[in-house]
Design a protein around this nucleic acid. Sequence first.
DNA 1: CGTCGGATTGAAGATACTCAACATGAGTGG
DNA 2: CCACTCATGTTGAGTATCTTCAATCCGACG
Lengths: 253, 253
Amino acid sequence: MRNLMTMKLEQFARFSEESRCQLDELASGRRRTWPRKRDISSEGDSVEEVHLVLSGLAARYKDLPDGGRQITAFLIPGDLCDVEGFVLERMDHGVIALTETTCAIIAQPVMRKMLTETRELTEALWWSTMTDTAVLRERIVDHGQRDALERIAHLFYEMLIRYRMVGMTDGNAFEFPVTQGELADATGLTSVHVNRMMMRLRAEGLIEQRDKIIIVKDPAGLKRVARFNARYLHMHRTEAGDEEVAHRAGDLV
Amino acid sequence: MRNLMTMKLEQFARFSEESRCQLDELASGRRRTWPRKRDISSEGDSVEEVHLVLSGLAARYKDLPDGGRQITAFLIPGDLCDVEGFVLERMDHGVIALTETTCAIIAQPVMRKMLTETRELTEALWWSTMTDTAVLRERIVDHGQRDALERIAHLFYEMLIRYRMVGMTDGNAFEFPVTQGELADATGLTSVHVNRMMMRLRAEGLIEQRDKIIIVKDPAGLKRVARFNARYLHMHRTEAGDEEVAHRAGDLV
DNA sequence: CGTCGGATTGAAGATACTCAACATGAGTGG
DNA sequence: CCACTCATGTTGAGTATCTTCAATCCGACG
């Protein structure tokens, strides 16, 4: 069964049949489901097994002693949760399920092999890691250079593209079940201020919300408000990838 | 000749003689020097050769269309500049020399081999990349959760440790030749506000400055103000590494 | 001696925060 | 079926941190 990580990585590399099988097998083994607000991986954990999100939504976060929590990344299906903890022995941050989330469990030897021994997969993993890092870097730009409205707009636009890339959108709508408090933790704002900015985004006709679904009514407008530049997502690596991207998210770039 | 990257990586892994030679050779080949304010690598560049900082100070940065620049990382001797551009084909950000900076130039085949073919070095490179990412994550926490004073204090404390790790400190003093404008770009503040916070740090007896040298007068105080927690630097991997760290930066952790 | 980059200082203004109240809806137990 | 709680979203008013826009100072360097 093709899994979403394979789908994501295939935008970057054309795999041999063997590699593709190995990738697909990652999601076919043991799996586990976490309820909302439960840690998938905690700060300080030594990571023996790596988790791959299959369904649901999770987030990396760091708590500060006095209280105050920062979400540094959202993890959607196809994302790896804790390779860093695997490589570095211990997690320096936590990963929490924001909704009921199911992960595939990747055993130590399999992961180790992917990291160093199977050239094609190692390269793909380097690509994946480097783009994750680029996203992180953009988040710093968000916090340093963009005001509250731009920051939230940027986040939504990025999530739209990321969900597109794993085929989890319906047009310009996607399910993104986060509370305003969680958005506050991610953007470094207060939930009160997030609320006000959300209302402005709606008032200006850029987005709509129904249940936990975000509907981007005016993608071009949202992109402009966010001062969005897609380069950091590195969506154009292979010819095959380009076709795929053009198909899935080309109109957003 | 032992280079600073080897020194850094040895805190993590014990290398075979062969690997160590390979690492040391990285810095022994071609090199080049950039004057202040010149790009070592620019956004959009396709990266054929990777750069390793030997001396000087550089920074990763991203410009926004309207103006506004964000520095996402400082690069000191022993740091690689543009592996991401190498892996991803194009740079999504620039790397600029903040002072006259000399880099070793690592040729494509050598780099490619390190990334995938030489197990020991590949592992070391994974470690290095993952810790860089962890530092980036901490920068997001900085911007989201710490106020101006804490943020600047945190940056100085982190730089003290990083310079210690490559042996470039004199007690608690280190040369860090950045302007307040550059600090502003790194912290997401204005230079005016950076100035005021710097004066407070000095007034409270936490740091002193002479020329471009930062002297941390009260490390414990600076650490407290910064709400600093060293876990994200992952300094304790091997026994050998631990001894080294204990020697070089243990009192700061 | 004049200029230039960088540091410093002052005053006014804006973005985002704090605190506090209230609304809404889902879930729970009587 | 209603009273209750709890989490989330919404609103208002006062406040603070940080910005903006100056002006001034200072040392290095031609």
